[in-house]
Design a protein around this nucleic acid. Sequence first.
RNA 1: GGUCCUUUGGCCGAGUGGCUAGGCACAGCUCUGCAAAAGCUUCUACAGCGGUUCGAAUCCGCUAGGGACCUCCA
Length: 499
Amino acid sequence: MPLQVYNSYSRKKEVFESITPGHVGMYVCGPTVSGESHLGHARPYVTFDIVYRFLTYKGYKVRYVRNITDAGHFEEEGREAEDKVSKKALLEKLEPMELVQKYTNLYHWAMRRFNNIDPTIEPTATGHIVEQINMIQKIIADGYAYVVNGSVYFDVKKYAATHDYGKLSGRVIDELLETTRELEGQEEKRDRADFALWKSAAPEHIMRWTSPWGEGFPGWHIECSAMATKYLGAEFDIHGGGMDLQFPHHESEIAQSTICNHKAPVRYWMHNNMITINGKKMGKSYNNVIKLTELFSGDHPLLTQAFHPMTIRFFILQSHYRSTLDFSSEALTASEKAFKRLWDAYETLKQLNFAGNTSSGEGFDAELDAKINTWLNEFEEFVDDDFSTPKVLANMFEMAPIINSLKDGLLPSTAIAAATLQLMKDKFKVFLEDIFGLQAISGADNEALKGVMQLLIDIRKEAKTKKDFATSDKIRNQLAELGILLKDEKGGEMSWSIE
RNA sequence: GGUCCUUUGGCCGAGUGGCUAGGCACAGCUCUGCAAAAGCUUCUACAGCGGUUCGAAUCCGCUAGGGACCUCCA
């Protein structure tokens, strides 16, 4: 069954065919690194990580480009206003690249904890100023942009006369032209619908580059067009991002790239839906974000506990990427338990071994065996169907009781064929680990381990008090074999560390 | 105001017109020294009203609620 993806541009599912056989070019809008990533940001990166992993599984060589937006109107809360006064020494002032570095590092840390595979290219906007300027010049040369006071604007009205501006986001151009909203700097534009390709920088603006039009900085949309064109070509396969980027960001990207490269840039537009909290979109402007660091530490009034990145990944996979996903501590707790049960069953499955089983032997359950094969074969079918990860998980949960029953002998070990068991092991591994990118929750930062260690310490203390050195030594020696060092301290206290 | 989307059992969440998705919680039972884990069983919902159809959670209309975008936003 071929892969089908929902194309936001056509508003329907389409069979996926790459432009270059065997290769896929995919661009995903990355973070603006002027602040800390929150739960809402996690969704696209997990979603498109699955897309990347699945395409790779399908045999494609994927060039996955995900940008870092590190240029623009940058400020850090509480610092910007002060810096505008600008009488401080250099080292006291906000250094934009310092800010960008800090949040880029934090973002990368979070991505690794989610077990997201790094994109093959992660370009920065500031590293592609030249490409952006070149692109703007081409657009001006073609007559679709104009310069005013050192800024450059895209002429949407002219573009719309011959192109379908608004198709991706379902806008009607006439309505856009009539928008009554009053915004700063709008008077320079010929038309309200026009958008900036390059902005002249006011004296206090902290990020600025020299351009043919004076000192300034690039408009928000041009970076993606420039970098996607550079690394993926004038036309590429998949462009992903959050639904909230459809307009104006992606709409503008289409317009710029189309004028510059003389063809529509993207074959398949994919948009993930929002994560909501109490039914409302999680977003900075709504003041309802939960940062990833808060989620991992549990340090937030709405959280009853800390949540492991794998729990969050699993939580995201339990819903379809085009549906909103409502966050609550309760929902995450449910996901945590569910994930643990599923993963335990998977670990159990790996230990099972019924090598001699045949489909004609004593105790063989043909119906069960067939059902399992059906469930397993549906894995790929479901992901093929626009990445229906929740259905795959549902099938896995159908098999969890079977796995556990086989282990406990509640089902005869001869009930399923050896080949079926092997297929189960293979499919679970491929889908759970390789495609879904899930992994075991473990490590020394685990509260459970700390509890276990305290328990052992208590037992050892008691044993020592009773001069039961056989027991106390056993505990210490066996832990040492596991790489855990137990240390006696003055006053009878004990501490431990992992070597 | 404009455009579009959405409304599923206590909660989360799949659902291509026809057979109980799944998870979590709850309850009962089995197992167990106790517990946990595990297993089994129970809980059959589709906002309301009307229509199309042999048959609708699924299609159409109206009403009500919620949301997204139109400005930075994943």
